[in-house]
């Protein structure tokens, strides 16, 4: 299963004085099993792009293909796209509305017209996946939960539709460090279980840790596309775009500026550790000579 965006351009309010082009001529193929990080400034078009992946927005020009089929052509059942591609918005807890957690999670499957028994099964499965196994929680009002738990419920609501591709817009925004880490581990776990993940993120440390591919957006177009290694090799370029780079990347740049032979592709903590230990041991050996 893959989604392909072909020459996708999206213009808001075309023909009005407020016309603005959010993304322009974007070509992107999301491949099965990827963990794709979508990076960029606010206003770089990444959220608009994310909304094209499940057909919420239709391109002004260009095509969006799901397994080779144009999802906006006449006669194509949109529900099919919604079922296969799940989209989790920023602060998804703001969309909760039902009396109980279980009912809220059931909203998606119900819309798919599934039989009661299957809905119940899916709700339980989705709540298990997000780590809310507790039977009590399912019967609680979602508005009684903590912020982190509410967000999990909202994600469960999307997972209950059993999407093959999961698109998440800044799933960790506004969470404290511990809840953030738990959320990222949850998403990483879903990816390990076989889901294709597209995650809009501002945190380069997260991208470095989890993504198998990173796409950098700037002014509505794709500026960079590659593995995190490839992207972070151009740390200077990212900084020029006003984006953060992982702190260990910055450390590498500083060290090289100081004339130390620090290798280039360091972007995870464990890589930095190895490299620094090697540097130190080498230094010691020299000193001993």
């Amino acid at each position: 299963m893959q989604v392909t965006l072909e020459h996708v351009t999206h213009t808001y309010q075309p023909g009005s004085p407020f016309q603005s082009t959010a993304i322009e001529d974007v070509n992107l193929t999301i491949r099965e099993g990827e963990f794709l990080a979508l990076i960029g400034h606010t206003g770089s078009g990444k959220s608009t792009l994310a909304q094209h992946i499940n057909g919420l927005l239709a391109p002004t020009s260009g095509r969006v293909l799901l397994d080779g089929q144009d999802i906006h052509q006449k006669g194509y059942d949109k529900r099919e796209v919604r079922r296969k591609v799940g989209l989790v918005f920023q602060y998804p807890e703001h969309q909760l509305f039902e009396e109980t957690v279980a009912k809220d999670v059931a909203f998606g499957p119900k819309n798919l017209g599934l039989p009661e028994a299957e809905i119940a099964e899916r709700v339980q499965e989705a709540l298990n996946k997000v780590g809310l196994k507790d039977k009590d929680i399912a019967e609680k009002s979602p508005f009684e939960l903590s912020g982190g738990q509410m967000r999990r419920v909202a994600i469960a609501g999307v997972l209950a539709m059993r999407p093959r591709i999961l698109v998440l817009d800044e799933p960790a925004a506004g969470l404290d460090p511990q809840s953030r880490e738990e959320m990222l581990q949850l998403i990483y776990g879903l990816h390990q279980q076989g889901a294709t993940v597209v995650m809009v993120s501002h945190s380069m440390d997260d991208v470095a840790r989890f993504a198998t591919r990173a796409v950098v957006m700037e002014h509505g177009t794709i500026a960079m596309d590659g593995t995190p290694e490839e992207i972070f090799r151009h740390a200077e370029r990212l900084e020029q775009m006003g984006l953060d780079v992982p702190s260990v990347c910055k450390l590498g740049i500083r060290l090289r500026e100081m004339g130390l032979p620090c290798p280039e592709d360091i972007f995870r903590e464990e890589q930095a550790m190895e490299a620094l230990l090697a540097l130190w041991k080498e230094g010691k050996a020299h000193g001993a000579e």
């Binding site: 404290d176 460090p177 511990q178 880490e181 440390d205 992982p246 702190s247 260990v248 450390l251 903590e269 930095a272 550790m273 620094l276 230990l277």
Partner: peptide
């Protein structure tokens, strides 16, 4: 306290 040290403090501790 469910807090996390800044990345460089963490790295320094590991080293």
């Amino acid at each position: 306290y469910r807090l996390d040290a800044p990345p460089m403090a963490r790295l320094a501790a590991q080293l």
